[in-house]
């Protein structure tokens, strides 16, 4: 019975997300964001996307938290409290309307795990059936990322490399 733990998990996700936005202390906000990523990783694992859950747990809950904390300590260590201005009236009216619209549109999405949905009928069966014969790699996600979609992954690596170079050029302070 999946009902018993999916509702508390989603509630925790909601509580940590709202808390990260509403809390005044920036350090608390960063730690809440880290725990939000951790709960999101649990949700991914529950949906069966173990690789994504792994990345979310390591990057979102681990590395991003450290980077946020270092940024906070490096920029304004004395002013770490934030006064939130009250939200404008237009946002209070339009955002719930947008949410209702999205919920209405979500009715047309295919059911989770539906074998007749477009993503599971287009090219996924080919990958699932042939990837082991083609590449001798039991993990289909890895074989798609690294073999069938190799060029995409190379460009992603370029993006990460560019991010590192840009951070080094913009942020490294020289002593002289």
């Amino acid at each position: 019975m999946t009902f018993s733990f999916e509702i508390p998990l989603l509630l925790l996700l909601l509580v940590t997300a709202v808390g990260a936005v509403l809390v005044e202390d920036l350090i608390s906000a960063i730690l809440l964001l880290g725990s939000y990523s951790f709960f999101l990783a649990l949700v991914w694992a529950w949906l069966g996307a173990v690789d994504v859950a792994f990345v979310e747990a390591v990057v979102g809950a681990g590395l991003a938290t450290v980077l946020f904390l270092l940024t906070l300590f490096g920029t304004a260590p004395k002013v770490s409290r934030l006064r939130l201005p009250p939200p404008p009236m237009a946002a209070l009216v339009s955002l719930p309307l947008l949410g209702l619209l999205l919920l209405y549109a979500a009715n047309d999405l295919p059911q989770f795990g539906d074998p007749q949905s477009p993503p599971s009928t287009h090219i996924s069966p080919t990958y699932l059936e042939q990837s082991y014969q083609d590449t001798h790699t039991p993990n289909v996600v890895t074989s798609i990322l690294m073999d069938y979609r190799s060029l995409d992954t190379m460009i992603e690596t370029v993006v990460i490399f560019t991010a590192g170079i840009a951070c080094a050029l913009l942020l490294r302070r020289h002593s002289s």
């Binding site: 792994f54 993990n139 890895t142 990322l145």
Partner: peptide, 10 residues
């Protein structure tokens, strides 16, 4: 990463 969850990025 070839046999279970994981891989180069993680």
């Amino acid at each position: 990463g070839q046999y279970g969850p994981g891989g180069g990025f993680v």
